[in-house]
């Protein structure tokens, strides 16, 4: 059974059609990339998957792990195994990083009928994963994302992903704003999470991220539809030719 099945998905934002019939199937363990020009609907797709308010699905369906995803609230989707790594991670003044991670992990455990995580076990778990991402104890103590650089914010997203062990990682322009060193750290973090039972949807404007996170499939999203799908060589083709051809097709 496919992990994610998107069928004929139409989405409007403020009455304006953004996604105009998306079909996409992701099997367990697969990494798919969605590429497209700015304004093509890439971020909208990530928000519709994660359940943000303000995105109206006017037609179509999304099944996740056999369940009707659109009937679930954002927190229920996260518990079911969807993780959105935000393009712009949100600052949470006054909420310490460790508190945030613990709340998120305990919400999962509660849903699974398990007790709260033991404090020492939790600390060890987070420290071990934080270390590989170059996240210091001091950063974990600070309020979530407050005063973090762009690279620190993105690494923090990957840390959350590593701790929460989702079934589907949706990476929304995770490479934006990163220098080459940060890009490598983040990519290594993502690659370490590749697993036969975990799928990924990598949304990006540029091919460079896909040099580090090798996709199984690449889709080109333009003007609210997937215009082409192919293997990873499609990303290279886009890098060489740009998105100009897709804009004309849509016109």
């Amino acid at each position: 059974m496919a992990l994610l099945e998107i069928e004929n998905l139409h989405v409007e934002v403020g009455g304006k059609p953004i996604l105009k019939g998306i079909d996409l199937v992701i099997e367990p363990g697969e990494v798919h990339a969605i590429m497209g020009p700015n304004g093509s609907g890439k971020s909208t797709l990530s928000y519709v998957l994660s359940g943000r308010d303000g995105y109206e699905v006017t037609d179509g369906s999304i099944r996740f792990d056999g369940k009707d995803l659109l009937a679930m609230a954002a927190d229920e989707r996260a518990i079911a195994g969807i993780f959105l790594a935000f393009q712009y991670p949100v600052e949470l003044p006054g909420v310490a990083g460790m508190t945030f991670l613990k709340e998120a992990l305990n919400a999962r455990r509660k849903a699974a009928g398990e007790g709260e995580v033991d404090a020492m076990t939790f600390l060890k778990l987070v420290r071990a994963k934080a270390k590989t991402l170059g996240i210091t104890d001091e950063m974990l103590k600070r309020a979530v994302n407050v005063g973090f650089s762009g690279g620190e914010k993105k690494r923090n997203e990957i840390l959350q992903m590593a701790v929460l062990e989702p079934k589907l990682c949706v990476l929304d322009e995770t490479d934006s704003g990163l220098d080459i060193d940060a890009l490598k750290i983040v990519s290594e973090g993502v690659n370490a999470l590749r697993d036969p039972d975990r799928s990924m949807l990598v949304i990006t404007h540029y091919q460079r991220l896909l040099e580090h996170i090798q996709p199984d499939r690449v889709h080109v999203l333009a003007h609210g539809r997937i215009r082409r799908s192919g293997g990873k060589e499609l990303a290279l083709e886009l890098e060489a030719n740009g998105y100009a051809g897709f804009a004309e097709e849509a016109a």
């Binding site: 959105l84 949470l92 709340e103 959350q160």
Partner: peptide, 12 residues
């Protein structure tokens, strides 16, 4: 902020 927390599985 609310969405960010909920997107991590924390109830509203």
């Amino acid at each position: 902020q609310l969405f960010y927390l909920m997107a991590r599985g924390i109830e509203r």
